[in-house]
Amino acid sequence: MTATSEPEAALGVLPRADGSAKYSHAGYTVTAAVNGPIEAQRKDENPYEAHVDVIVRPAAGVGGTRERHLESILQSSLSHIILIKNFPRSLIQIVLQVEDSPENDYVNTKLVQGNLNFAIMPALFQTAVLALLSAGVPMRATATATAVAVVFHDGVKRTVVDPSPREIEIARSVHVLAFTSHDELLLAESEGDFIVKEWDEVYETAKKICCHSAPADDGMQMALDEEAAAGPDMRHFLRSTMESKVAADLYWK
């Protein structure tokens, strides 16, 4: 299954936008464009802070109520990490285009409009953060996100990181968590049937993926065996992606 693949990203893929990023992980590929701060429409103008406008475009068809919901979740979370108070009366626009999503190899791929798609949320969130970094939009902190599912299989409980569509379908509960680079919980969306104790375990798993960064000095000595089982190290991924971008930009230094 594709779920265990490492995340990949490319920055500045759209030359006309102020910032852009293409990100693929766990079967999802999303491209984001960020423009801003630019002049806001009169109705969106806020005298104290920038308006963050998130637009999610699905892989096929036009956005519906589900996309509106995803947009509102992303908007409130991203507004928190962008320094929106620095740009009153302006607009920061983030357009997210889903390019590819994993084929559901089990059920017929009917477009279910209303149902919330949990697995795509981390990909959308991560792409948006990368594009914001690429645009140089001033931010309070960076953030990382992941999806975790709790699956009961033959009576055995398993915690699955970056679940596939099939795993989500049979999962007892599905969770999406995002943490800022200051280890604060930024976003938590859970659905299904779970108890507080299970949520705690999910929290631990997600925190490990989102916040555990390899020590910068001895990156070679990363405990590889353990990493492979626990899932990708998102913060390290974000840092190395940005480091190579900065190195490319400042090649002349």
Partner: peptide, 14 residues
């Protein structure tokens, strides 16, 4: 160029 004196930083880094 010593990378330790000119570190690459991300928003919010110490």
């Amino acid at each position: 160029m010593a990378s330790t004196t000119r570190p690459t930083l991300l928003p919010g880094d110490e």
